[in-house]
């Protein structure tokens, strides 16, 4: 009772009420629906789902595309995070604007723009032909490579910013100290700098992976109906098939995957933090 009279607790009340009504209750309904059958509680929706080889393919598509998007974001975002942290003030502002401003553009608009970029006569195809990598223009649109490329662009800021925030806090004198002791640049990076950036990497990976695993609009526009993921299957179950149970089941599985990633990354971040 004492805790309830605490004004700090009362400050959280609107948020708690809001989340309870609009998040916890619908989530509870979703969970209940996925475990309910004509005779009451049942695991049948899950056994049916996992018993169908096609659904494993859907899970594979979901995890595979999310993994590739995360890898591409990390490969681009890690050095970009360093560049941002080490840039001069004016350049840093310019870079931050360049990274953050695209977030104000809707996902649908960006995905439509990528449809143009990934076409046979699009910029990417022309660039690869000019470099001699491709002999003739090819399309990336409606391919897995196109999906990964487009999604990585959209989610990239969520990888760069956590890495930047960690790199910014690294004391440059640590690396200099290593140098005075005869450590080579690569040794200093592997043994000093990289471990210190890992919490940022883990956060970025958690952000990007959890968003990629549940993306709906981007695959719908960049790869289409022939590449089903858990999100698109959930949407289709509710909106077209009117199969609320299948939709609830796929949504819960998707949620479980996202929670697993967040929990694993938190555990990893704590573990890395404790070894610093």
């Amino acid at each position: 009772m004492k805790a309830l009279r605490d004004p700090v607790v009362l400050l959280a009340a609107p948020a708690v009420l809001y989340l309870t009504l609009l998040y916890a209750l619908p989530l509870g309904w979703l969970l209940a629906k996925s475990f309910s059958g004509p005779a009451g509680l049942t695991l049948q929706p899950y056994t049916e789902f996992f018993g169908d080889p096609f659904n494993w393919r859907v899970i594979g598509n979901t995890l595979g595309s999310a993994l590739w998007v995360t890898v591409v974001c990390l490969a681009i975002g890690y050095p970009a995070g360093f560049a941002l942290a080490r840039a001069g003030t004016a350049m840093q502002i310019a870079m931050l604007v360049a990274i953050i401003l695209p977030l104000s553009v809707g996902v649908v608009v960006k995905a439509f723009a990528w449809q143009i970029v990934l076409r046979r006569d699009g910029v990417v195809s022309q660039f690869l032909v000019a470099l001699g990598i491709w002999d003739e223009p090819q399309r990336l649109l409606f391919t897995e490579a196109g999906l990964v490329l487009g999604a990585a662009n959209i989610f990239l800021p969520f990888m760069i910013l956590p890495i930047y925030s960690v790199v910014k806090l690294i004391d440059p004198r640590l690396s200099e100290a290593g140098a005075t002791l005869g450590a080579t640049p690569s040794y200093r990076f592997v043994r000093i700098t990289f471990p210190l950036t890992l919490p940022g990497v883990v956060s970025g990976v958690a952000f990007v992976f959890s968003m990629s695993v549940s993306m709906y609009v981007i695959p719908s526009l960049l790869i289409g109906d022939r590449f089903q993921t858990l999100s698109t299957l959930t949407g289709r179950s509710f909106l077209f098939m009117r199969n609320e149970q299948l939709g609830s089941t796929t949504a819960v599985i998707l949620l479980a995957l996202a929670i697993a990633v967040v929990v694993a990354s938190s555990w990893l971040a704590r573990r890395l933090g404790s070894t610093e």
């Binding site: 399309r139 409606f142 719908s220 289409g224």
Partner: peptide, 11 residues
Amino acid sequence: NLLTVYTQIPQ
């Protein structure tokens, strides 16, 4: 021969 399968006509 398929470029894609659509659900949204405008696309």
